[in-house]
Amino acid sequence: MRTSKLLLTVAHRLAILAYIVVALFPLFWLLKVSVTPNDLLYSEGVRMWPSRATFEHYEFVIAHSAFPTFFKNSLIVAGSTAIAVTILASLAGYALSRFNFRAKYWIVALMLITQMFPLVMLVAPIFKMLSPLGLTNSLTGLVIVYTAFNVPFATFLMQSFFDGIPKDLEEAAMIDGATQFVAFRQIILPLTLPGIAATLGFVFTAAWSELLFALMLISGNDAATFPVGLLTFVSKFSVDFGQMMAAGILALIPACLFFLLIQRYLVQGLTAGAVKG
């Protein structure tokens, strides 16, 4: 009995380990190539770690390429999109969760429909629309497009979090003397922090790594985000793998930091104890 339980535990851990190895191996390879000196890249064959490691790619990327600009642009675009989407999705999700209004069914259906089209189909019309408004080649334009595309899904996400919070709580707050909005802000919103964190994280990563629209709407380095910027390491005749990978590693940092920051809320069940469970 005890041995079989032990075996099961070991098998369980091994399965998880296997998954983690497969999932993280590309990241490891990214790191490995980013510290491999150019002269060893093709000469050493396939090795798990180069015989000599270097940070020269990082130095180059930070000091001599346009990467800092890309990075800053991406941070602005992804950050603004995440914040804008989360605010809009919180309000819309709350409305869908708590209020009954006319055309609610149709609004939900429309939001679902927007999620059905392949984005490629929409690139041309969106370019056509944004161009006379001067929103191509601009970070604002990107933020608007990303926000529009992420709001529906984020709204459904937030709605499900609001649905999980008992209605009694804001009714109690309203009887205690709060308006519906104050009850939302002071009672419901703090309890939705895990949901808000999840939405922020989801939208931030989506916007951070988006390539299609960034590529189509942005020309030139000044407003390029880093996925577009990564392509500048590909020239007609060669690919600068070392620098590209170094840039990739650097681009991972904000996403990791972001999740480190919000992971506390992602795992924490804040509503425990509110009502009899």
Binding site: D168, E171, I175, G177, T271, A272, V275
Partner: peptide, 16 residues
């Protein structure tokens, strides 16, 4: 909020 009444809920509805 303007009725000046208090209510005790079956679920208690305490702010967690």
């Amino acid at each position: 909020k303007d009725r000046d009444i208090a209510m005790v809920f079956q679920s208690y509805a305490l702010y967690p």
